[in-house]
Amino acid sequence: MKIGLDIMGGDYAPKATVLGAIAAHQNLSKDQNLVLFGDKEQITPILAEHNFNPDHFEYVQTTEVIGMGEHPTKAIVQKANSSISVGFQQLKEGKIDSFASAGNTGAMLVGAMFSVKAIPGVLRPAISTIIPKLKGGFKIMLDAGANADCKPEHLVQFSILGSLYAKHVYQIAEPQVGLMNLGEEAEKGSLLTQTTYPLLKENSLINFFGNLEGRDLFNEKADVIVCDGFTGNIMLKLAESFYVLTLKKGIKDEFFDRFNYEQYGGSPILGVNAPVIIGHGISSPEAIKNMILQSKSMIESQVIEKFKTAFSS
């Protein structure tokens, strides 16, 4: 197993990414190798400072970095020797089994779509994220920002992707799917949700719970939340703010502690032909470590093959 990591991506790279890789190494077996993409000259001193044997990692030297503010499509094309571009090229060629970065989110989406591409049958891949439940455990929400405008058939596919991901990566036996809406009744909502509801209800590949309201975001109703990327991204950013607010107010609470993004690593792009994970731009070493372990879980679960089987029919 070869887990690819962009060592140059993120606001605190390369130090945070290197330290995260060191921490993750302790949780990998001998046949699970980390492949670091970036400038080795910047990486080596950090490894030496922490007395870490550089031979534990594999390296792919790159000379360019795609900045957070750069135009994703232009940067992918114009910076062919960037850590993100080279990482996706190796993922496409099968030289690595997964690729993760806390760098430019748009570049990660473009790279995933144009290098490894969408699984045949998948109309639009989606970004998924974790939402903690009040009584323990969590929900998976998608789309969290890749597709601001969606059609009913996109939400149906998101429900299939989310269900399979919940079942095979997080071992939720019979995940229930909820459609985020402004009311519980089937006839409530926008044209998008009104049209999507009956399609989800009749779909045999999912266990449809019904509509969810905003107040259901953190309760026990459903295991997978489906919505368009505009709605999902707003809910995600609002949820993330709770953890920051509790820190500023000096509030210590187990539930709000679980809003800390570091625990979950990153957000996978579901629906492409290989495991691809996008980390938060402000990812700490702990977040990078968990993003690497998340990549490992996706590879081990063979969830991509599960996606391909579901959409081949």
Rank of each mutant, 00 (worst) to 15 (best):
E49Y: 06
E49Q: 14
E49I: 06
E49V: 03
E49H: 08
H50P: 02
F52W: 02
F52R: 02
F52S: 01
F52T: 07
N53H: 07
N53F: 04
N53R: 06
N53P: 03
N53V: 04
P54E: 05
D55L: 10
H56R: 11
H56Q: 09
F57Q: 00
F57C: 00
E58H: 12
E58Y: 09
E58K: 14
E58P: 05
Y59C: 03
Y59K: 06
V60S: 08
V60L: 09
V60M: 08
V60E: 10
Q61T: 07
Q61D: 08
Q61N: 10
Q61I: 04
T62L: 07
T62W: 07
T62C: 13
T63P: 04
T63L: 10
T63G: 09
T63H: 14
T63F: 10
E64M: 09
E64R: 08
E64A: 10
V65Y: 05
V65L: 09
V65M: 06
I66H: 01
I66Q: 00
I66C: 01
I66V: 06
I66W: 03
G67L: 13
G67T: 13
G67S: 14
M68T: 09
M68P: 06
M68D: 07
G69Q: 09
E70H: 04
E70M: 03
E70G: 04
H71P: 06
H71T: 13
H71Y: 11
H71A: 13
H71D: 15
H71K: 15
H71L: 11
P72T: 06
T73E: 11
T73M: 14
T73C: 06
K74R: 15
K74I: 10
K74M: 11
A75Q: 00
A75W: 00
A75H: 00
I76Y: 04
I76E: 02
I76S: 05
I76L: 11
V77N: 12
Q78M: 12
Q78D: 12
Q78R: 15
Q78S: 14
K79T: 01
K79G: 02
K79D: 01
K79Y: 01
K79L: 03
K79C: 00
A80H: 13
A80G: 13
N81V: 07
N81A: 12
N81M: 11
N81Q: 15
N81W: 10
S82T: 01
S82M: 05
S83F: 09
S83P: 09
S83Q: 09
